[in-house]
């Protein structure tokens, strides 16, 4: 039951987008988000949408997957849309019923904000869909490593993130197993009011925490036994190298920003 939850949602196919350098992909995602917020007119969303679709096609991703990433956001989207629609002062009144006034400016702002949210999320999911979590943290570590000079723990942070991501499926499986074991003893996780249900989680959470700590201890021991001592002087398995594709991706993104600013 818990196994059905997809996390990290990496979509494993071979494509030029998947093969881009993770550092470049992270920077380009940030640049894309900036582009989404730079646009002032609604027309600016056309190149932005074109960019996302191009990237998805190049990455061999079904568009359905990108849309699925937006689905959990629908309540926030509707909320944002309605708030901006009703509470924006404007000149051109489109509709006025009692105290509610819908203006053209309000409508445009509502559309703009909702569109920004949609593209923000699809841009971010594009990154996670095309980059395995481990590669992603690797890229992050490399990007943040200049900050090490001022004492920022870039390597440690990336290591913690990889370990956390690595253990999500393990803990999910463990949770599934413990849940079944307690169900076999007659536990009921589904019925009852909120307090009863919260209480019924105790037989699941206590063993889960115990096992998480046990695993953490074991892992720390195993890493130490293999002489892990932090990032200092550590070589890498995957050496990141820039290719021509990375250059093209940068050029396309730069073009997007220029077009958005000009519109």
């Amino acid at each position: 039951m818990l196994k059905d939850i997809t996390l990290g949602q990496y979509y494993p196919v071979k494509s030029p987008v998947h093969n881009l350098d993770p550092r470049i992909k992270i920077i380009l995602t940030i640049a894309f988000i900036v582009a989404v917020f730079l646009g002032t007119s609604l027309w600016a969303f056309i190149p932005v949408a074109a960019y996302i679709i191009l990237a998805a096609v190049l990455a061999h991703l079904p568009l359905k997957l990108l849309l699925k990433g937006i689905k959990p956001l629908r309540i926030i989207l509707i909320f944002t849309f309605l708030l901006n629609l009703f509470f924006n002062a404007g000149e051109t009144v489109l509709l006025e019923v009692w105290k509610i006034r819908i203006t053209l400016e309000g409508l445009l702002t509502a559309i703009r904000f909702s569109m920004r949210l949609v593209f923000l999320v699809s841009g971010a999911s594009l990154l996670t869909l095309t980059t395995p979590p481990v590669v992603l943290t690797d890229g992050m570590e490399r990007l943040l490593s200049p900050l090490r000079k001022i004492g920022f723990p870039a390597h440690e942070l990336a290591m913690m993130m990889s370990i956390a991501l690595r253990f999500i499926p393990v803990l999910l499986e463990e949770a599934d197993k413990i849940m079944k074991a307690q169900m076999a003893r007659g536990a009921d996780f589904e019925s009852g009011n909120l307090i009863q249900r919260a209480k019924s989680m105790v037989p699941l959470l206590v063993p889960l925490f115990v096992s998480a700590f046990r695993r953490a201890g074991d892992l720390a021991m195993a890493m130490e036994a293999r002489c892990y001592h932090g990032g200092e002087g550590r070589t890498r398995l995957r050496v990141l190298k820039l290719t021509m594709n990375d250059l093209y991706a940068c050029l396309i993104t730069a073009a997007l920003i220029v077009i958005v600013v000009l519109i």
């Binding site: 206590v206 115990v210 096992s211």
Partner: peptide
Amino acid sequence: LLFQYAEYQLFEETVYKDIAFGPKN
């Protein structure tokens, strides 16, 4: 049903309470 590595399903403060979990349910 007793699961594999069943010791990892224990959660109560005392052995007594843990054994009581099933019959209580």
